[in-house]
Simulated assay, not measured.
Amino acid sequence: MATFRLARRLRAQRAVDTMSDGQFAVLAALSIHGEHTLGQLADRERVTAPSMNRTVSLLEEAGYLTRTPDDDDRRKVTIALTDAGRLVVAETVRRRDAWLEEALAALDEDERRTLAAAAEIMRKVADT
């Protein structure tokens, strides 16, 4: 439960309060991995193509990403971040880092060492 609560607190540190976790995940994926097709984004986020299409449409209307038709295959569309989308990702990451840094600063040295050891164990579990 503590892991879920920490994740929830971090997710609350957003640059855009009205943006859902799913919408931010799409922006973050495009920021980290570059342009995607709709199908690739749907696969990455483990949602259906129609669901991803709704998410992408909302983000496009907000000006956070663009859709560009492929020159060779008009059925294929490339989705990419706009400058506004990049700013949302950068500001959200900045806010999350600042919140976490402040929270960790309140811990004593032994607690920080314990947390670092636990993080390594959690990484191992996640990689299995």
Rank of each mutant, 00 (worst) to 15 (best):
G22E: 13
H36S: 14
R123M: 09
L115R: 02
D70M: 04
R94V: 02
R94H: 11
E91D: 13
A62M: 09
R74K: 13
A25D: 15
T114E: 15
D71W: 04
V47L: 05
L30T: 03
N53G: 11
T66W: 06
A119W: 04
R5C: 03
L6N: 10
T55F: 05
V16D: 13
G22T: 09
A118Q: 14
E101F: 06
S57A: 11
T82K: 15
G34D: 11
L115Q: 06
V47K: 02
E101S: 11
Q23L: 03
T68V: 09
E109V: 06
E101K: 11
D71P: 09
T78F: 08
S31T: 06
D43Y: 00
M19I: 01
S20M: 01
D70K: 04
D17W: 03
L41T: 00
E61T: 08
D43G: 01
A98V: 02
A29K: 03
T82Y: 01
W99Y: 10
L115E: 15
G34E: 09
E120F: 02
R74L: 12
I121T: 07
A2R: 15
W99Q: 02
L87A: 10
V56M: 08
R95D: 05
E60P: 08
K76Y: 05
T66H: 12
E109K: 02
S31Y: 10
A103D: 08
A116N: 12
D72C: 05
R86N: 07
R113Y: 10
D17Q: 15
R123W: 07
M52T: 03
G85L: 06
R9M: 05
E109C: 02
R94A: 08
R44I: 01
P50D: 01
S20Q: 07
